[in-house]
Design a protein around this nucleic acid. Structure first.
Lengths: 205, 205
DNA sequence: CCCCTAATGGGACTGAAGTTCCGTTAAGAT
DNA sequence: ATCTTAACGGAACTTCAGTCCCATTAGGGG
């Protein structure tokens, strides 16, 4: 299992190479939606993309490699955090954006696949960690602003607050495997906010 | 892929059949520790258990089937919740028992495998849900006692409190894939307790 | 516009996962 | 103790993921 060359490392990133990559990532996402990560085969992706299977093996190496590349693509489309002026609104916007992603017909299966890939491939795990750490850093900014406005105690750890908002949603998705609803998102915000106001997210302790 | 017969459904659950099952589940757990879920093959389990591979396919059907059976075995060994007399001690005991399980040389890889299996197999997903719902119901009792003692507001949802304790730990394990420490467990208890005391876990809202 | 070669593509090959067939073993009833 | 048959096991067979080899195509510099 040779480590595949990322597109960034290619010597000729021009026309055909870029077209092949686009077709393969497109086909990968379609396959994820229809069959999930466990049903993702290099062979079928190659056929669907109209590309030689040798090429898919050479450049991506494994199903996990495909998912990792898809992840980097999605990470580049990351959105700036909301700024509604009040913390509760910002946090709710964050929770709802997670919720929306999970329920999206294409993004949902892709996110599930990213998590599944991470459970069985170290490279995918790193990619997933990078994906979320970027997202969390971005939204932590909204909490920092709230601290400056005096809505939360000085020293509150913004990244931890954002993690705390998502944690129950992913817990339902991955562990208890119950449907994740808007009520869950609202409850998560309310509980996290209650703990944060009580100073439970102040850095040292 | 024929659905395998559970041991419960066998007509002759006596000596040999039970020995085969024990040997196979033992081998499965060993393989999970050494190779993880993605490296679990029916063939290797059969060899390691000293059992015909036909038998493994017939009774368990797939790697996910093996993990599911292991899960039911572990669920039967579930422990009653702590009762230290104070809620914080009970919740900490819960968080630490999760932590301990995750770090255990045999249980840790098995739990990870259960989650990985659930991401790609509906039967495994149901098994995992059953496993945790049983655990959560058990520990929710500790919260109910605390409500009776007046430590938390009337109407506090015990099961949700227990879920909230575990959620950040599993979030680290599965999503952000950072090491889970005792500090994480303590923080999770402190934050959940702060939210619960503020009434954020009272049922309707 | 032409050339060099990076990158792709077809097709044969390899090995392991999964299936099938049928003979053998032993649980449990009488 | 004997018999019935559920359950196990060995081995050949099938399928398909993954690899290798080499011919073909098309960027992109000159």
């Amino acid at each position: 299992m040779e480590q595949p060359s990322r597109l960034a490392g290619t010597v000729r990133p021009g026309g055909r190479t870029a077209r092949v990559r686009a077709a393969v990532l497109e086909a990968t996402q379609d396959e994820l939606v229809e069959r999930g990560f466990h049903g993702l085969t290099m062979d079928q992706v190659a056929v669907r993309a109209g590309v030689g299977k040798t090429t898919v093996y050479r450049r991506w190496g494994s199903p996990a490699g495909l998912v990792v590349d898809l992840m980097t693509e999605l990470a580049d489309q990351s959105v700036p955090h909301a700024d509604t002026g009040a913390l509760e609104g910002d946090l709710l916007a964050n929770a709802l954006s997670v919720l929306e992603a999970l329920h999206d017909g294409r993004l949902g299966p892709t996110l599930q696949a990213m998590i599944a890939a991470a459970t069985c491939d170290e490279q995918a795990a790193q990619g997933l960690r990078a994906f979320y750490s970027r997202r969390i850093q971005e939204w932590a900014g909204a909490v920092d602003l709230a601290v400056k406005r005096g809505e939360l105690p000085e020293g509150t750890d913004g990244a931890e607050v954002i993690r705390a908002i998502s944690a129950p949603l992913y817990y339902r998705l991955v562990v208890s495997r119950e449907p994740v609803t808007r009520e869950d998102a609202e409850r998560s915000v309310a509980r996290t906010l209650a703990a944060a106001r009580a100073g439970a997210f102040v850095s040292p302790g």
